[in-house]
C-alpha cells in the first residue's frame, strides 16, 4: 500500500501531511500519558511496532503505484487505540522508507493517513462495536484486523484516484480501477493477516493476560474464561 517517493504531486503531499498532523500530535500526547502511567507498556509498544515493520515489509507487487502486503496495525489498535497506532505507524513508515526504500519521505503523510489513521480508526470502530457483545474475543480481534487492513487499501485507492483521475469517469472511475486491482490481492491477504494476528493475540491471552486487563482491552471475566479453555 505504500505510495512511492515522487508518485504524488507536491500539493497532495502537503494536503495529506496537514490532515495527518493533528492525529499524530494527539497520539504523542496520549503516548506520553500512558507511559507516565505505566512503563510496563514500553516493551509491548516496541514489539507491536517491530511486528508492523516486518509484516508490512512482506510486499507483493501490485500495478497501482503501490504494492500489496499485510499491515499488522490491527493488534496495536486494539491494545493502544488508533492514535498511538498512528505514532507507531509514523516511526515504522519512516524506517521503511529509509531502510528499504519502501514508501518515501514526501509521501509519508499520505502513507500515515492510510496505514496509521484510517485503517486503525476503522478497525477500532469494529472492535468497540463488538467488544461488549457476547461474540468470542477472537472473532472480534479477527474482524478488527481484517477491517483495518481493508480500509488501509481503500484510503490508498482514494489517495491515488484523487491524484490521477481517469479521463472518462473521473475520480470515481480511477478509484474503482485502483481498488479493483488491490482487492484481488488484498482480500486473501487481509484474511491471512487476521488469522495470524488472532493467533498472536491468543498467545498473549495465554501467557500475559495481565497487560491486556490493565490496558482494558477486554473485560477481565472474558479473558479469564478464555484462559480456562486452554
Amino acid at each position: 500500500m505504500h505510495i512511492m517517493e515522487g508518485f504524488l504531486p507536491a500539493t497532495w503531499c502537503i494536503i495529506w501531511w496537514i490532515i495527518a498532523l493533528p492525529f499524530l500530535i494527539y497520539g504523542i500526547i496520549e503516548l506520553k500519558r500512558i507511559l507516565n502511567q505505566n512503563r510496563e507498556y514500553l516493551p509491548l509498544l516496541g514489539a507491536t511496532g517491530a511486528f508492523i515493520f516486518i509484516l508490512s515489509a512482506l510486499k507483493l507487487p501490485s500495478v497501482t503505484g503501490s504494492c500489496s502486503h499485510p499491515t499488522g496495525t490491527g493488534l496495536s489498535t486494539i491494545c493502544f487505540g488508533p492514535f498511538i497506532t498512528s505514532v507507531i505507524a509514523l516511526i515504522v513508515l519512516l524506517f521503511q522508507s529509509l531502510f528499504l526504500a519502501h514508501g518515501g519521505l514526501s509521501v509519508l503523510g499520505a502513507n500515515i493517513l492510510s496505514m496509521g489513521i484510517v485503517g486503525p480508526l476503522a478497525g477500532y470502530a469494529i472492535y468497540r462495536f463488538l467488544k461488549n457483545t457476547a461474540l468470542s474475543m477472537y472473532i472480534t480481534v479477527f474482524a478488527a484486523c481484517v477491517v483495518a487492513d481493508l480500509f488501509t487499501y481503500l484510503m490508498t485507492s482514494i489517495e491515488l484516484a484523487l491524484a490521477y483521475p481517469a479521463e472518462i469517469g473521473g475520480i470515481a472511475g480511477s478509484f474503482t480501477l485502483f481498488f479493483g486491482i488491490f482487492a484481488i490481492t488484498q482480500v486473501p491477504l487481509a484474511i491471512v493477516e487476521g488469522v495470524v494476528l488472532t493467533l498472536v493475540f491468543k498467545y498473549i491471552v495465554q501467557l500475559k493476560p495481565d497487560i491486556l486487563v490493565s490496558l482494558g482491552v477486554f473485560p477481565k471475566e472474558k479473558i479469564e474464561s478464555a484462559r480456562s479453555e486452554f
Binding site: K32, G46, F53, V87
Partner: peptide
Amino acid sequence: VLIDLAMLIYRF
C-alpha cells in the same frame, strides 16, 4: 518520547 520509541522499535 517519539525518538525514544523510535530507537526502541529500531532495536526491536
